[in-house]
């Protein structure tokens, strides 16, 4: 993609109004990481096949490597940095920790964002639904077992709290 004049984009990131300048060829992932210093979203493949860069765009999970920075004018974005509520971890973060659902941790931010979206939709999601909905997130360390269990445990906590 060719370079051209930078655009001014105003958006809301993790509840805070944010604006940035970016070239049309810059992905949302690049903007988050390089312009805004939000390096929690990771680049694993840069073509939508691993989910490590998953963020919520207007409440829906997307691969931020496949969104252009200029597209998010007026949008609401939530990243891994916004999942915890002040000093309290979200149940899904807590369950990932307690259930040892991460090893190297590089895929973890993407899994957390996608898992949160899934549990917000259905905290009682079945194992099959969890496995289907999170199949766009690759993990190479865990064999997925403990991730599935952590998501299930977080869902139980969330429905108990609701």
């Amino acid at each position: 993609m060719s370079a051209s004049k930078k655009a001014h984009v105003t958006t809301t990131i993790n509840g805070e109004s944010t604006d940035f300048l970016c070239e049309p060829r810059h992905s949302l992932l690049e903007v988050l990481r390089d312009n805004l210093g939000l390096t929690g979203s990771k680049e694993g493949c840069n073509n939508g096949n691993c989910g490590a860069c998953t963020v919520l765009l207007n409440g829906r999970p997307v691969d931020s490597c496949l969104v252009l920075g200029v597209e998010v004018e007026g949008a609401e974005i939530e990243t891994v940095e916004g999942i915890a509520c002040s000093s309290n971890l979200h149940p899904v973060q807590q369950c990932f920790l307690e259930g040892a659902a991460l090893q190297c941790g590089i895929c973890t931010p993407g899994f957390l964002v996608a898992s949160k979206a899934l549990l917000d939709k259905d905290p009682n999601a079945s194992e099959e639904t969890i496995r289907f909905d999170l199949s766009g997130n690759l993990c190479r360390c865990t064999g997925y077992d403990k991730i599935v269990r952590a998501v299930q445990a977080a869902g139980q906590q969330m429905s108990a709290e609701a």
């Binding site: 939508g48 997307v62 496949l66 969104v67 899934l118 999170l134 766009g136």
Partner: peptide, 8 residues
């Protein structure tokens, strides 16, 4: 694709 792709 996966869920993330289907969102877009």
């Amino acid at each position: 694709g996966g869920w993330q792709i289907q969102s877009r």
